[in-house]
Amino acid sequence: MSEKGQNFTEKKSTRRNFLKNSGLTIGGVVLGGAVGSLLGKDNATVTEETGHQQHAAETSSSNTNAALMFFSPEQFQITEAAVERIFPADDNGPGAKELLVAYFIDHQLASGWGTGAKEYTSGPFFPGEGTQGYQSSLNRQDVFTIGLAALESQSKATYEKSFIELSEEEQDAVLTEFDDGKVKMKGVSSDFFFSLLRSTTIEGVYADPLYGGNANMAGWKMKNFPGHQMSFMSMIEKDEVIKLDPIPLSSQHGH
């Protein structure tokens, strides 16, 4: 990171400054409904202080979001162990477990996305060719339920232990079998379940913290992604790497 880049983190612009600097007015009139409505919040800062960084995951009573909407406690534990292998803790920063990705997945499965609310779910159902996409009658809640049970039974069949009791290497070996489509599952192939587990893990690492994962925005910090920023107008042409404190959407939702 260059020294110049550092400076950007220190610039905390107010909404008013932002509006002034970004040339959003024509003849003194501010344009646009969304932007206009920001004006009401005179003194609120756009860039929230993110100084109060907690390093441990907030799973205690202070994080009222960390409870289950869909998973059983057992399903939650298996998920938590599996996502950590997909996105493990390392020198870059926390892994999926500490980022609360298993809670994110639980909450997503409880949503309309978990039941395929906006997807075409009428029959008749046929397996179809590889190029024709998802054709099963199962929704994502079903796929996770069957898939997590299969992870467990595969672990027991191979190692006579629960998935959560396996060593990291053993967990990787079981997950690899799923990834390779080698495990027999009802309704969908094991690689389909794995790819859903994998993509949902990545979502939980990097989605806005409002969804329950990406704890403390630590996912974003690893990638130097600054979250919800209003303008890069003054930075877009710059050569140096620019590091900004990330901003969550909650900053926009003034109280």
Partner: peptide, 26 residues
Amino acid sequence: RTTADYLMVHDELRYTKRHEMMQDLS
């Protein structure tokens, strides 16, 4: 729709991954 609908628009999960603005395939 108006621009006022986009106050919470910087949300990759909702707009890109969950297709907030796309037709309802059901």
